[in-house]
């Protein structure tokens, strides 16, 4: 493939993904406010545009226009770096996520429906999301505020602990698929979804994913009841918006991974004329991801928050042993059947 075309294709794909991602984040947030509103017998945003549909735009404008404050005693460089780090790393993880099995024709080339197809996609995602904790730690430390510091300490220990359970939960499906490539893992689910043989791993993954993205009931790093806003207490305007963005992109990432690894990705009944056949896999994929995103919102409307020590105990004493046991049983069965 000539270099120029390759760059052009990558650029176009990045542009499309970025646009879709940012729009999605904006509207997930609107959906969250609407759905949680309904759950709490409120209506949510209704004033900006029809049914409040322009609310995300209004929010974005607000974030841009807000005064950008840097505390005097903050470590300026790290204070600036950490939101950028959070947002960048969260977006980086999206690059290896395939959204369909086929290819699209772009500038005379057939190219897969993902920014880049690497054969250790899953490992890459785990690695990049692990790095995301630096954004939180540095934000808390560089703000030079006690509440931020406590929030970032919590964030660091929580993410490191749950990263482990998250990774271990994914090993079962990896053993079944025999590959780390997300594309291969989805293709291995042609006949049955991995949620069936790996139901335990699915539950562990789901729980750890909630913790990984700092959502209720694991939103301790930003527990507003205790720490103000946790690690981003001192942030305002677009810097805060970047943290916000990172949190929602992370939600999308873990939902995509859950869909790809456990729910068969884009597999689903395909029927009808050629055009419909081409679109349906994408529809199934999006629907499955939306299901997970709805789950996030639903849980937020229902559950209280864990305490720090309970969270750690749950991670290390329940999730990690369960995940290890799951790996053992899975590998034994796979080994015996082989």
């Amino acid at each position: 493939m000539p270099n120029a075309t390759f760059f052009l294709i990558s650029l176009v794909k990045c542009g499309v993904v970025l646009f879709v991602l940012l729009t999605l984040v904006a509207y997930i947030q609107l959906a969250e406010r609407k759905i949680v509103g309904r759950m709490q017998s409120r209506v949510g945003p209704t004033r900006v545009g029809p049914f409040g549909l322009l609310q995300p735009a209004a929010d974005a404008i607000k974030f841009i226009l807000k005064e950008d404050i840097t505390p005097d005693s903050a470590h300026k460089f790290l204070y600036l770096l950490s939101p950028a780090l959070s947002a960048t790393l969260s977006m980086l993880a999206i690059t290896v996520i395939p959204i369909g099995g086929g290819t699209v024709r772009l500038f005379g080339q057939n190219t897969p429906m993902q920014i880049t197809d690497i054969n250790v996609g899953l490992l890459f995602i785990l690695g990049v999301t692990s790095l995301g904790v630096y954004g939180i730690v540095l934000a808390g430390w560089s703000s030079n505020s006690k509440y931020s510091l406590l929030g970032s300490l919590r964030g660091a220990s929580q993410m490191v602990s749950y990263e482990l359970a998250l990774g271990l939960a994914l090993i079962g499906p990896i053993i079944l698929a025999g590959s780390l490539s997300l594309r291969h893992i989805v293709e291995a689910q042609q006949h049955y979804w991995f949620i069936v043989p790996q139901f335990l791993a699915f539950l562990i993954y789901l729980t750890a994913a909630f913790a990984e993205t700092n959502r209720i009931p694991f939103d301790l790093p930003e527990a507003e009841g205790e720490l103000g806003a946790g690690y981003h207490t001192e942030y305002s305007a677009m810097k805060f918006a970047l943290f916000f963005l990172a949190e929602y992109i992370n939600m999308i990432t873990v939902s995509c991974v859950a869909t790809l690894v456990f729910l068969g990705g884009w597999h689903g009944p395909v029927f009808g004329p050629a055009l419909l056949r081409a679109i349906l896999p994408l529809v199934w994929f999006v629907l499955k991801v939306c299901f997970f995103l709805f789950l996030y919102i639903w849980v937020r409307g229902t559950l209280p928050r864990f305490r720090y020590d309970q969270l750690m105990a749950f991670g290390w004493k329940v999730l990690v042993p369960l995940a290890l046991g799951n790996i053992l049983v899975t590998s034994l069965i796979v080994g015996l059947l082989a």
């Binding site: 949680v36 759950m39 709490q40 017998s41 409120r42 209720i216 009931p217 939103d219 527990a223 009841g225 205790e226 937020r300 409307g301 229902t302 559950l303 209280p304 928050r305």
Partner: peptide
């Protein structure tokens, strides 16, 4: 305070 937002409303 404990994080159960809906109960509040």
């Amino acid at each position: 305070d404990i994080g159960a937002m809906s109960v509040f409303l």
